[in-house]
Write a protein that binds this DNA or RNA. Structure first.
Lengths: 204, 204
DNA sequence: CCCTAATGGATAGCAGCACTATCTGCTATC
DNA sequence: GATAGCAGATAGTGCTGCTATCCATTAGGG
């Protein structure tokens, strides 16, 4: 229970209604909020400060969606360690090329583009510059996921829950996809090279 | 430079060849290793202990691939906070159903399956149990990504670099896909609801 | 040949994060 | 009216990724 106090202190959770100076009542909203916080924290891997940003953004009815997501997406990269070398430049070029080739209507300053460039630059530095050859397959899959996500939100969710749902879908959806990818990876690998030994999880 | 000493201490980086008791020489291998560490750390978001596991696994030539990846994939979930409630049970059922429906040859104890179940359970607890309706779209995309990844590794990489390449592909590929997904999301959203305001990044 | 500056190795310290424990004052309630 | 409990505030904990300091040794320039 002290954890809840902590969340209230950090602004993640509104304080309970005070019936008396020392008696607060928590209700439905708090419970739901708490579940959301735990999910974003445990499954989504966000940090509390980011969650605080996202939640205040969700609560602000006039907040445009992309700003909420901007607050949510900072959990990746954002180290702001700009390498500014050959690989980074090349990666940025690849990204802008990809965006224009796909006709993606995205704000050119989107942090996601910077994250993408950073990841590609890192691969290039590791001798995997040729990874860009599969970028379009990745992009196809990403589009498919984005479409699925949007369709789900569009048909399942009322307008007032929209923002929260998109946040949930984006953050938890990433965890879902990540797990699926690993499963598919195992299967594809088994398909190509035949199964290897038994599980025997011994990872320290 | 003290960071390198730290990595050596943690077993991420082999100590340099000692030419004299106080003079060590670092070479090509160390540089490459260091780049790999930085990539896994900064872009992949792994922690140093996990990276240590993965690197020792990579260095062990007799290590089956899936164990290396097991060491790598623990970065997600793994909180071991088993909820053991209705949602968890339902989520597990959904996962085993999905796996069998897809015919995925995966070890049933694969931690990825547990992560997936955890994520789905979290969504269910947030009132988004209907998210499973789009699971197959997600799975399609995941299969596509896995195929692309495997094809890349299969045609680009020599056998001795295979394990390392798969790790890089899995970890950094996740960052790549995540960024692509966010970009695609913005585009799909613009397509569906028309563009909203200008970027103006003001995220705290 | 000697003196300085640098290096490797070991130990200790620091900053950020997610909590957790304690302490104080008050109040519901038995 | 005594006790148990809660709200709120402050301080402390454990972990993680580094960083700083210390020491003995040694490269290497004058």
């Amino acid at each position: 229970m002290p954890t809840i106090k902590y969340y209230v202190r950090e602004g993640l959770l509104p304080p309970g209604e005070l019936t008396s100076p020392n008696q607060a009542t928590y209700g439905e909203v708090h419970e739901r909020r708490l579940r959301l916080i735990r999910a974003l924290l445990d499954v989504g891997g966000m940090k509390v400060a980011e969650i605080a940003d996202v939640l205040t953004a969700i609560d602000d009815p006039a907040r445009p969606l992309h700003k909420v997501l901007g607050a949510a997406a900072d959990r990746l990269g954002a180290s702001s360690v700009e390498h500014d070398d050959t690989e980074s430049a090349a990666a940025h070029a690849v990204v802008t090329d990809l965006v224009s080739r796909r006709g993606w209507r995205t704000h050119e300053a989107d942090p996601a583009a910077a994250d993408l460039a950073k990841a590609l630059a890192a691969m290039a530095r590791l001798g995997h510059g040729a990874f860009v050859e599969v970028l379009d397959d990745y992009a196809d899959a990403a589009e498919q996921v984005a479409r699925a996500d949007l369709a789900y939100v569009g048909r399942r969710v009322s307008v007032e829950d929209m923002v929260e749902s998109v946040v949930i879908g984006t953050v938890l959806g990433e965890a879902v996809f990540s797990a699926l990818r690993r499963l598919a990876h195992v299967d594809a690998s088994a398909q190509r090279y035949g199964a290897d030994g038994p599980p025997e999880p011994k990872t320290s």
